[in-house]
Simulated assay, not measured.
Amino acid sequence: EFYERAGYITTLGQQEGSVSIIGAVSPPGGDFSEPVTQHTKRFVRCFWGLDRALASARHYPAISWLDSYSEYVSEVAPWWETQGESSWVESRAEIMELLQREVRLQQIVKLVGPDALPDSQNFILEVCSLFKTAFLQQNAFDDIDRYSTVGKQIRMLQLILSYWHLGSEAISKGVTMVKLRRMKVVQEIARMRFSVSNENLEELDRIALRLERSMSQLGGIYDER
């Protein structure tokens, strides 16, 4: 009954508005399977699960991208379109799929080590690691990183996905992971949340151009072979 109080309302002053309820549950030992947490998840459509391992690794915000979820994706998609970002739903789905694939690969790595994986699969781990540090992680004390506009968020995500697409194509031509990691532009992508301000989003476009140029040059070398 508590969560049912949230929703669209008409106030006593005959004004229209909405009531949002954000519940906080702290299960013993971080066990999300305990009854109170499970009962809460039955009624909410959005869940942010804090991860102790992320907090210990100083990855903030320490929100688990695996345990957390939102059932409002289809409802907020039209808003993203009004912002001129019609590709948001597809980009989000693609990066979520990569994160799921990373989980399965990490299980293999724990058993046999990363050297047992081909470059095509190691590249998935590489891209997901880049996504976590360059996009999901945030420093609230940094003047640039403490807030990102919608435009900056979607451009950063598209840049990481572009690295995934171009890198996968390069690996299929024979380019090695070592060559990809050594590209200067990859370090620029890793630092973009600190180095590119909300007022200078054109720099992200320039990084994207440098990425395409670097990948083209690298792929061209292997094409000649």
Rank of each mutant, 00 (worst) to 15 (best):
R5N: 13
T10M: 09
S20Y: 10
A24P: 10
G30I: 06
F32P: 04
F32L: 10
T40S: 05
R42K: 15
R45K: 15
C46R: 09
C46D: 10
A53P: 05
S56Y: 07
R58Q: 07
R58K: 12
R58W: 02
A62Q: 04
S64V: 00
S64C: 03
L66D: 06
S68C: 07
Y69L: 15
E71T: 13
V73G: 01
W80L: 00
E85W: 09
E85T: 01
S87W: 10
R92W: 12
A93Q: 15
V103G: 06
R104I: 03
Q106M: 15
Q107G: 13
K110S: 14
D115A: 11
D115V: 05
I124L: 05
E126G: 02
E126V: 06
K132G: 07
T133C: 04
T133A: 06
R146W: 15
V150F: 09
V150S: 07
M156L: 07
M156H: 08
Q158D: 14
L159K: 03
L159M: 06
L159E: 01
S162Q: 13
Y163Q: 08
W164K: 09
W164S: 07
E169S: 09
A170W: 10
I171R: 02
R181I: 06
R181Y: 05
K184N: 14
E188Y: 06
S197E: 11
S197W: 12
N198H: 12
N200S: 13
N200L: 07
E203Q: 13
I207T: 02
I207S: 05
A208I: 03
L209H: 12
E212R: 15
G220A: 13
D223I: 12
E224Q: 15
